[in-house]
């Protein structure tokens, strides 16, 4: 059915790349849009850095602004030391942003509306935090779970709290992005469906359909804001978690 709001999230298999036992590795519509997102980012950055002129043209200043924004975000959250993670944060931010924005085109697939994608991205971030935290601080990384200046009896309660808090980070990071994109796209589709349903119910219906039409337009505008803001929030939380890996005691 045309107005089925869930239909847009279906994975379609284009061709199978490899088979390993019962698992098949396939190229799906999700993969296609991920490849598209990466190609767009590559083209954008390569075009912007092609001339390297002192007075930048439009695309070069766009690339410079994106660089400056991510670099400021990272420096503010994790200090100059955090700049070693710049490639990771920049890739994550541009990838999530491009996937979100690609999803705003009609008939396009929204990669970030699947929790497996956002989950893997969040695991990548937390994995980096854990591996780098232990690599740099050794066992001192465990100080992350021990708040400083707290009397010993309270630590019995606070250490488990900090551990649960740390473990819930990858989940809240991935669920936030996935839930925002999924809910937004379903809402747009449902309100757009109302237009069709009311419109086919005679003159009165057509007049009534202007209301969901106005709402659909308003929600679409809001979705563009959400698409950008969620990419931004994802990147800024990544910076904050990476800061924990660099400076575990707080």
């Amino acid at each position: 059915m045309a107005t089925d709001p869930i239909h847009q999230f279906q994975i379609k298999n284009f061709f199978t790349v490899a088979e390993a036992g019962e698992t098949t590795i396939s190229f799906t519509n999700s993969s296609l849009f991920m490849v598209a997102a990466v190609s767009i980012i590559l083209a954008f950055v390569l075009l912007g850095t092609r001339k390297k002129s002192i007075i930048p043209d439009r695309i070069q200043s766009l690339v410079e602004m994106t660089y400056g924004m991510v670099a400021d975000m990272l420096r503010n959250a994790a200090g100059n030391e955090g700049m070693r993670f710049f490639p990771l944060v920049f890739s994550l931010f541009t990838f999530v942003l491009t996937c979100n924005m690609l999803g705003m085109f009609p008939y396009f697939f929204t990669v970030t509306s699947h929790i497996i994608i956002t989950g893997i991205l969040a695991m990548l971030v937390i994995g980096t935090v854990i591996v780098y935290g232990f690599y740099k601080n050794g066992l001192g990384f465990l100080k992350l779970f021990v708040p400083s200046g707290v009397p010993l009896p309270l630590l019995v309660l606070l250490v488990p709290i900090e551990i649960v808090s740390f473990l819930s980070r990858p989940i809240s990071l991935s669920v936030r992005l996935f839930a925002n994109m999924l809910a937004g796209h379903i809402t747009i589709k449902i309100f757009a469906g109302f237009i069709i349903m009311l419109g086919s119910a005679g003159i009165g219906g057509i007049v009534g359909a202007t209301l969901p039409l106005a709402l659909t337009i308003a929600i679409t505008a809001l979705e563009f804001l959400v698409a950008f803001l969620q990419a931004y929030v994802f990147a800024i939380l990544t910076c904050m978690y990476l800061n924990d890996a660099l400076h575990p005691s707080h």
Binding site: V164, S165, S168, S172, N180
Partner: peptide, 18 residues
């Protein structure tokens, strides 16, 4: 709204993870 949404998700995931 965005900050509220963030807090709600953090609250629920903490319970689920616990």
């Amino acid at each position: 709204y965005n900050e509220g949404f963030r807090l709600v998700i953090e609250f629920t995931t903490a319970i689920l993870v616990g």
